[in-house]
Design a protein around this nucleic acid. Structure first.
Lengths: 119, 119
DNA sequence: TTTATATATCACAATATAATGATATGATAT
DNA sequence: ATATCATATCATTATATTGTGATATATAAA
């Protein structure tokens, strides 16, 4: 039996959301909503480098958000579960109402202020 | 009118998920599912430091995931929208099926290997 | 008006994460 | 067998995020 404490549950859930919480990974997930794709196709659709794509795919795979199937020399990736797409859809809906706020979120993702930096 | 390009959309959505993607923030959100709470109560429920809590609350507030209301010297925080709770619930459901995968996700969150570190 | 309580802010150190380039592996075609 | 294509791995560097401690602000109580 796989027992999960509350604290562990939060850690896990945070990790799940982190799978979604990076533009590169989210891009991949969005692209996969159109159906299964090989790595080459994902690289082409996203414009990311091959190794970066592969690194993120590994993360997504190990986090259970995507599944891969070997097809000869190709690897075919797909969303692992309908709920992955559902979550994305729900986020979009939420986003359409809070987008302005997200733009203004300042604690993180601040562009580095170099105006006072020493030379 | 607020026009959002595709690339911007992905950035925004990633940022939204990042709001959920940190154990500290997720803890706060989970705790707030039981109803509105003051900062003091949140600090007590989560066991986090006051300043850390406040920093994360600011992030959550500016990202539109929670809303705050000043009540005399207290600040009462609540989830900003039902969909915030819905997303958490859906993540829980997805998690119950992919938990094992998440445990094994290795690209990030690796415990630092100090076995070979120089003395 | 002093003191205590509640919350916010901020700079900094510690840590985590992401992108890259080089290289490895493994499959198919020649 | 060798060349080529598809994908994976890995170390390194650059950058972003987190937590902390010190301090500020604002409200209320004594």
């Amino acid at each position: 039996m796989l027992t999960i404490t509350n604290a562990e549950g939060v850690q896990l859930q945070a990790k799940l959301f982190r799978g979604f919480g990076d533009p590169a990974r989210l891009n991949i997930l969005q692209v996969l909503r159109n159906g299964p794709m090989t790595v080459t196709e994902i690289v082409a659709s996203t414009g990311m480098s091959q190794s970066n794509t592969s690194n993120h795919l590994r993360c997504l795979r190990e986090c259970g958000l995507v599944a891969a199937e070997q097809q000869g020399k190709y690897a075919l990736y797909r969303l692992s579960d309908d709920r992955v797409g559902d979550l994305l859809a729900m986020a979009e809906s939420l986003l359409s109402d809070v987008a302005r706020g997200i733009y203004e979120c300042t604690r993180y993702n601040l562009p580095r202020d170099i105006s006072q930096e020493k030379v």
